[in-house]
Design a protein around this nucleic acid. Structure first.
Lengths: 343, 343
DNA sequence: GCGTGCATCCAAAGCGCTTTGGAAATTCCG
DNA sequence: CGGAATTTCCAAAGCGCTTTGGATGCACGC
């Protein structure tokens, strides 16, 4: 059933039926009711294709996932983020388009998206420090919101970010207060902006406490369980091993724990661990008392809010960019304790 | 730049330009070249909206994720599946639409998808044993492929599934051969078809070996780390605790391991663990010798192939349904060993 | 020189909706 | 009671593409 046939059935013009269904005021309540009845009766749903051609809006938001040969953004965090954003979209009648884009193809894809009109806006994932996508999107005029920030890009764009620096600064300071001085940082890839900020927070806290920075205690890779495991093994094999670990994700922390359990060291007694926790639905930080002491911030909430920001800007493009900095909770778990007394 | 203006620029008709760009034979090579040059010069890309209205194809595949209040399909497995499917889509010029759908809304959404023409086909995730979506989609005539199967639905639809029954039967038999008789099954939700099949395989192997089935050794919940942990604690507290665990996912197995490490029991010596491993990119089963003995099947490959099947059926709807049963590898890791001698 | 066949091109209709710019009918009010 | 204002409806254009059904010109063979 399409609009024309529905209009014929009702002995009305397409115009009237369309306006009745879309809630315009220049149609009497009586006929509006008639139209609505007939629409549900005949199971009429307007064709998205035609509608978006006529209106110029796709009612679709794009999520572009960079696919490097070696590193994937399709990670556990992404799933929860999408879930959050999806809630917002469903509530407001938007669809979500997912696109995996090989590195280097990005410019072409964004321009495509704009000129082919497949989406009304996009959300940028995993910004790097100097992310070329931001000026690019500004240039081509496609509304966007960044999940994270790009340090080297001057302002003038919308973003939502966790306060990574303060989070890791607080976590580091917490470990220092417990007496730790050799603190390892098992970070994400540091060309990622968030990882860079976390390192800054870590370094800052150490400097504040007059502790010299030891580069051998810092790692930077993609955040997998195996990476956490391997790094810990290597770090523990050092002449002066760390007594505390700061990790960038639950997944990595689980790897750290696995490595510790291969040794005689007990987590929370001999070695302390703090992780950042994205509060993923299927990977909770324990029940009751958390497994790990953690800086926590729900990535699902972030998704919901990013989507919200984007839709607002699409509705009213004259609005100035939104920015939102989320502070983390530092929740105490079983994985931290005072630094062991030197033997 | 749109088709009309491009045609004007070239002093050609829209027809000719369109056909030149789409590779029809009734346009001379000379003009085709001219057209292509002009198209790239002016950065012309056909509007998806107009194109899909004209052709009736959306060039988009839908992935519907059921969202129950309590259980989420946006799980770690989903991310990798999507990544695989996305590769296929990119390669063939398709887009991917993601939709989170609250339980109960499904029928409305599928009918919507069909009549609004937003997608050309969909992939069904997480089929339950008697999944109503399958007959529904057949009725409304939207092409689809099921990732998994629905036991209670008679054939006549396309699916790709892991041989869950044989996988868990083999795994159970392997444990039995090692001398284990008290084997726990920490399964996924058993209204999910795959979980039901796994249980069948488990039960079958035990029966074959004349081992009586003990319902207290079987759990069925959503597959989280915490679930694995809690289940293991409870099972170990039994008067006659199991000596081996069979789990449905790496995540659960990690929970099992955490519970074991709270005790004096050593995995692989005192207690054996086998898990199913979906071979997720960020959650590898260790490097070198696997952490867990596991039945493995790449969910990413599954995604790639599901997408392939669907696109083939969309291109030629007269084709009979495809079905594909993937056998798993049983890879030996460090988590299994002979049953401990009874003290 | 004329019908045939082929290679190129094009005008116009159509996809299913929204929206503009009235027209017709009704109400209002001095 | 007549003109203005208001309400209710509609014809037709337009969104940007594809596709049908020719039209045109040219070489070919007889």
């Amino acid at each position: 059933m399409n609009l024309r046939r529905l209009a014929e059935t009702l002995n009305l013009s397409q115009t009237t039926v369309s306006r009745a269904l879309n809630g315009y005021s220049d149609v009497s309540e009586a006929t509006r009711l008639r139209v609505q009845k007939a629409a549900t009766l005949h199971n009429y749903r307007p064709s998205m294709r035609a509608k978006s051609l006529a209106t110029g809006r796709a009612m679709t938001i794009g999520h572009i996932i960079p696919v490097t040969s070696r590193h994937e953004m399709v990670n556990p965090v992404f799933g929860d983020f999408i879930a959050g954003a999806g809630e917002t979209y469903s509530a407001q009648g938007y669809d979500m388009l997912l696109k995996l884009v090989p590195d280097g193809d990005e410019e072409r894809v964004y321009r495509d998206l704009k000129s082919r009109g497949t989406v009304d806006g996009i959300i940028i994932h995993g910004p790097r420090m100097d992310d070329s996508r931001i000026p690019l999107l500004k240039e081509i005029g496609l509304p966007f919101v960044v999940h994270g920030r790009a340090s080297d890009v001057e302002d003038g764009y919308s973003w939502l970010d966790v306060n990574n620096k303060s989070a890791f600064e607080r976590a580091t300071k917490f470990l220092i207060d417990l007496g730790h001085t050799r603190i390892a940082l098992i970070n994400g890839l540091e060309n990622m902006d968030f990882a860079h900020r976390r390192r800054n927070g870590y370094v800052h806290a150490l400097s504040d406490a007059q502790i010299t920075i030891d580069p051998t205690l810092m790692r930077s890779e993609e955040m997998t369980e195996v990476y956490g495991y391997r790094s810990t093994q290597e770090l523990l094999a050092l002449p002066a091993p760390p007594t505390a670990f700061l990790t960038s994700s639950m997944m990595v922390a689980i790897g750290v724990r696995r490595a510790l359990e291969d040794t005689a060291l007990k987590m929370g007694r001999d070695v302390s661990v703090i992780t950042h926790d994205d509060d993923l639905s299927y990977l909770k930080n324990g029940e009751g008392v958390p497994i790990f002491t953690a800086t926590r911030s729900s990535v699902r909430d972030a998704g919901r809010e990013c989507a919200d920001m984007l839709l607002k800007r699409i509705k009213d493009p004259t609005l100035p960019p939104f920015t939102r900095l989320l502070e983390v909770d530092l929740t105490l778990g079983r994985s931290t304790g005072p630094a062991p007394i030197k033997g």
